[in-house]
Structures are given as C-alpha cells and as structure tokens.
Amino acid sequence: MKWRNLIMGLVAFGYAFLYIPVMLLVIYSFNESRLVTVWGGFSFKWYGEVLKNESLLNAAWLSLRIATVNATFAVALGTLAAYSLNRYRRFRGRGGFELLLAAPLVMPDVIIGLSLLLLFVSLEQLIGWPPGRGFTTISIAHITFSLAYAAVVIRGRIGQLDPLLEEAAMDLGAKPFTVFLRITLPLLAPALISAWLLAFTLSLDDLVIASFVSGPGSTTLPMWIYSSVRLGVKPEVNALATLMLLFVVIIVLFSGRIFNRKR
C-alpha cells in the first residue's frame, strides 16, 4: 500500500508540474498591474495592447503563412514517405531512408538551423537561388523537420489499414494510382488532418531554426516573443500566450471531433 501511495503521489506531482505553469500564465494575463507577478485586479488591458501592436501582428501573419505552406508540403511528402515505407518492403537505400526520416526528430535545433543556413548561403553563391533569406528559406527549413513528424503520424495509421480494401479495388480493375487516390487517401484522412495540424503547430513554435535561416525584415512570431522576453516577463506576452493556447485548444477539440466522427 505504501508503494501505491508513493506512485500516486509522483503521478499527481507529474501532472501538476505539467499544467500549473501554463495555468498561472493564463491567470496572470488578466492582471491589471505591469508588475507581472503582483496581482493588481482583473483586466483585459493587455489583450488590447496585443491587438494594437503592429510589429507583433506582422510577425504573427508571417508565421501563419509559413505554417500553412509548411504543413501542406510536409503532409504531402510525409504521406509519400510513410506509404512507400509501408508498401515497398525492400528497396535499395531503405535503411538510409529510415535514418534520414528519424534524425530530424531528435536532431538539436541549433544544428539543423546552422546547417540549413550554410546550405542556403552556399546555394545562393553557386546558383543564385534562393535570393536572400525569408519566407522561402524558413518554409523549406520547416518542411524538412515537419515532414519527419508527419511521416510518424501517418505511418501509425497506414499500419492499421485493412489491405483487403485496396486489393478489392485492384481486383475490380482500378489502377494503382486510382486506388491510392480513391481508397487509401480517404481512409487516411484523419491521420492526414492530425499530421497537418501537428506540422502547423511545430512551425508556429519554432524559434531556433527560423532565427538562423531568416533574413532582415522577416521576423516570425516566436522570434518576436523571444526578443521581447529575453529581458524578462512582459504582460503583453502573457496575453499573447493565452490567445495562442486558446487557438491550440480549439484546434485539438476540432480534430478530436473529426476523429470521433470517423470512428
């Protein structure tokens, strides 16, 4: 019984540890006082400040555009990777492919960021593309690591598909491409949506890689947040963080509904 209590205590502590910091952040975003950790009354003041801040809104708009492009490409490439690894059991370079697909999941951000920047600089010297750094280079960098995450999510689902459905379509004379389009993709839809959303939020969250591969004039939302919190806690950032959390909760609830309906 003593063991049980210890385990329960650790579990409760673990969950409290995961959730209390974020809850405090949300509570203090409604704090009137500029001294962030002293309660000065309830107020929406800082939310007003967020919506008035032009550099912040520009950064948010850039981040949303990059996240959308990133998620779309990452899911397309991730689907191809997951599908090939599941269907074509043996091909030359399979081991290398698996390795390249797993490495971005654990590779430290600073290394991905630096290496991609050096690639872009060398390419620009060599062939003149990409011209400067900004939207395109950040998107490419994000696609590179997001596609690995997308492939993980989609592989989990492909493994569960019933191969009989595809075989039946083939037997009825459908070409492989048609089968992929009409049978496989629709069955994968829930996984594709959650992979898309995951890639979207990963891109929206990345500070380190974007800092390396962005150029002058292209500040993403995490870069804006980082430069304003480096010197301490700001009430505007608390309000912004709460808005972002709200956005995520809505996305998660939405994707949860899609899953339940499909089931």
């Binding site: 974020v22 405090l24 952040l25 962030v36 950790t37 939020t201 929206l204 806690v233 950032v237 998660v252």
Partner: peptide, 21 residues
C-alpha cells in the same frame, strides 16, 4: 506537445524569478 514550447519555458520565468510567484 501542441502548445508552444517557447511559451511554456517562458512561463517558468515568472514563477522562478526573485520576486516571482
């Protein structure tokens, strides 16, 4: 996993600083 990593780290600044929560 879905919430911003940067913001979750930032939340600790307000908790741990000398005049923090």
């Amino acid at each position: 996993f879905w919430t911003s990593f940067l913001i979750r780290v930032y939340a600790w600044i307000g908790i741990l600083k000398p005049q923090g929560i």
